[in-house]
Design a protein around this nucleic acid. Structure first.
Length: 639
RNA sequence: GCCAGCGUAGCUCAGCCGGUAGAGCAGCUGAUUUGUAAUCAGCGGGUCGGGGGUUCGAAUCCCUUCGCUGGCUCCA
């Protein structure tokens, strides 16, 4: 009987040779329960038998690295299953992605949703067989020959492009894949998975290339985790603004009107108006002025700005009296022309001009999506013209304003990105450097954690993007703060400096909420349609029990309206239960029931949305408390 | 734009291998004066997304077009 030395997390354990890793674990002090281990770059199960001295790293079911490997291995398992079921299929690539994995396939007959069930069954079977997953190294020539023989021409292409002298493959039974790894040690470690959807995908992302079929799926180490994820998808469906929006009578889209064009109904318009009012107040506080510009302009202005060359989402132009007019896709040239309409002095700067500017973009039909991707929308746009010495301060102010507003709307988590100079850029290198430094410093000064997207800036300038995380953890891009060296140059922006010479100002382009349509869609999903009191289209519904209570109900309604509450009375001759049900389904924050008792005591019976009956309340007190919640833009309905 | 799927009343959906459409909810009308998530009864409502074809006959099969969904590509 001999012992082996196992090193885990800096501690060395001596165990009897031939025992399993799991029997050692009780002796190891760990924060999270491990689910997977890694030895020499290989992921192994806890039933691994310890035969020799080794270093072992442990991973919990939540660890990102372990999940990535699981997803990657599950994608191989899926490809394996597909090839077993449909031998003439070619496989493309199959990586782990954000919440799971996909694999691309090329096949004469497209997959159907029913095929997914069959593939899943086959995967279960292969997983149950607990097939070892082996890493195989071989010379490139051998690999090329091997995949050629199997008719995997796409893989051959990949090996030719990416393979070195020796190429790494992973083999599980009959299935072998050109792959860098790492992988799990056996298919038996894959237990809880689900194939989710089927879609098209271009080979190597090339729109003109061949079209493959992509199958998406996900997997987890525990059944509970898989369920949690599937529940999240269900929850997302319930929050879908495309469902809630029309249901709550907020907005609609009509085929007869045109795809991607939004009709804001009165209730949605109320929410929009409140967003806009708040937006204006905040901008006034921050020293912005407002401008307005037309929806069309001569096409020439877009030639000058460079949009005709670089931007392909413009609606076709309109020919009028031999002049071409263009529906605007952006507001920038207009604001710039306001700037250029008078000579500016260094004393005038900074100038901050904001506009809720409605723009039109001919987005390709396949990308339209509810309120999130549309063809006509209103940007909460602004352009800031400033001197070099003001740049950092202006960016800091804009960032701060964005954060302040987003927080007011109830968002608490953010992902902030700083995108720097790409290879193809316009403008002067020194300007880029200065601007990048200013962006970076302003984020640092504000204590905002951010990630740098090296080289991911747009060609005309570096930028800061802020993504918000909603109530169920999804992120949405809202704020963008971008420098624009291109337009400054093309429109020859300048001001007269202290030295009497003309200087080029910095031009900052920024949208904080993004677009009102999009932001509205995000808000609907974030709140699940349960808007906080200050944004709720109807804030209180008064329900008289019988006709004899109508006068009292109306007196309350008048009192609330006088106090700027959005109040309504439901006088229909229906039972209270019926009226309550309807008001609850409309997600109205407060319901006040009034009957004999209330009339007599000059009270009202309060019911808070999704919380139920709260008992009697004095109407004046209710009004004051509501007003306070509204004034504070409170998210909670605690009264 | 590309791939796949889908399109039946305002909404959710049924309608088998072709024989000119049906339910619930909503709406309207009437009765009920009602106490915390659906009172009862009656009525109206669809050229089955549009167009074309096959057929004696099409919601059903084929073609085409529009729209929607999931992705891809795009979003300087």
């Amino acid at each position: 009987m001999s012992d082996v030395k196992i090193k885990i997390e800096k501690s060395v354990f001596s165990v009897e040779k031939g025992t399993s890793l799991s029997s050692l674990l009780p002796r190891v002090r760990l924060q999270d329960e491990p689910i997977l281990a890694k030895v020499n770059g290989y992921f192994i199960g806890l039933d691994f038998v310890l035969e020799e001295d080794m270093d072992i790293e442990l991973f919990s079911a939540e660890s990102e690295e372990a999940l990535d490997v699981l997803w990657h291995s599950t994608s191989h398992l899926m490809a394996h299953a597909v090839l077993e079921l449909f031998p003439n299929t070619q496989v493309g690539v199959g990586p782990a992605v954000e919440n799971g994995f996909y694999y691309d396939f090329l096949r004469d007959v497209p997959f159907t949703l029913e095929d997914l069930d069959r593939i899943e069954e086959k995967m279960e079977e292969l997983a149950r067989r607990d097939i070892p997953i082996e890493k195989v190294e071989m010379p490139k020539e051998k690999a090329l020959k091997l995949f050629k023989e199997q008719g995997q021409d796409l893989k051959v292409e990949l090996i030719q492009e990416k393979g070195g002298e020796m190429v790494t493959c992973y083999r599980q039974d009959s299935f072998i894949d050109f792959c860098r790894g790492p992988h799990l040690s056996s298919t038996g470690l894959i237990k809880h998975f689900k194939l989710l959807s089927l879609s098209g995908a271009y080979w190597k992302g090339d729109e003109k290339g061949i079209q493959l079929q992509r199958i998406y799926g996900t997997s987890f180490f525990s059944k509970a985790q898989l369920k949690e994820y599937l529940d999240l998808l269900e929850e997302a469906k319930k929050r879908d603004h495309r469902k809630l929006g029309p249901e709550l009578d907020l907005y609609s889209i009509h085929e007869d009107l045109g795809p991607g064009l939004i009709l804001w109904h009165p209730k949605g318009s109320t929410v929009r108006r409140l967003i806009e009012d708040y937006w204006r107040e905040e901008h006034i506080k921050d020293g912005y002025d407002f401008v307005y510009s037309p929806h069309v302009a001569k096409l020439d202005i877009w030639r000058k700005s460079g949009h005709t060359e670089h931007y392909d989402a413009m609606f076709p132009f309109i020919q009028l009296d031999n002049v071409e007019y263009q529906l605007k896709p952006m507001n920038c040239p207009f604001h710039i022309m306001v700037f250029n309409s008078r000579q500016k002095s260094y004393r005038d700067l900074p100038l901050r001009w904001a506009e809720l500017g409605t723009v039109y973009r001919f987005e390709r039909s396949g990308v339209l999506h509810g309120l999130l991707r549309v063809r006509g929308f209103t940007q909460d746009d602004a352009h800031i013209f400033c001197r070099a010495d003001q740049l950092e301060d202006e960016i800091r102010k804009a960032t701060r304003l964005a954060m302040r507003m987003l927080k007011t709307f109830g968002f608490e988590k953010f992902d902030i990105y700083l995108s720097t100079r790409p290879e193809n850029y316009t403008g002067k290198l020194e300007d880029w450097n200065q601007a990048e430094k200013a962006l970076e410093r302003s984020l640092k000064d504000e204590g905002l954690p951010y990630k740098v997207d090296e080289g991911e800036g747009v060609f005309y300038g570096p930028k800061i993007d802020i993504k918000i995380k909603d109530a169920i953890g999804r992120s949405w891009q809202c704020t963008t703060i971008q420098l624009d060296f291109n337009l400054a140059e093309r429109f020859d922006l300048n001001y007269i400096g202290e030295d009497g010479q003309a200087h080029r100002p910095f031009l900052i382009h920024r949208a904080l909420l993004g677009s009102l349509e999009r932001f509205f869609g995000i808000l609907i999903e974030h709140y699940k349609g349960d808007f906080p009191l200050w944004l709720a289209p109807i804030q209180v519904k008064i329900l008289p029990i019988a006709d004899r209570h109508n006068d009292y109900a109306h007196s309350l309604d008048a009192l609330f309206k006088e106090g700027d509450l959005r109040s309504e009375v439901d006088m229909r001759r229906e039972k209270v239960g019926y009226k309550i049900r309807e008001a609850e389904m409309l997600k109205i924050p407060f319901i006040l029931v009034v009957g004999d008792k209330e009339v007599e005591q000059k009270n009202a019976s309060l019911r808070v949305h999704s919380q139920g009956d709260k008992g009697q309340i004095n109407p004046q007190e209710f009004l004051e408390k509501s007003k306070k919640l509204i004034k504070n833009k409170s998210i909670s309905l605690n009264i």
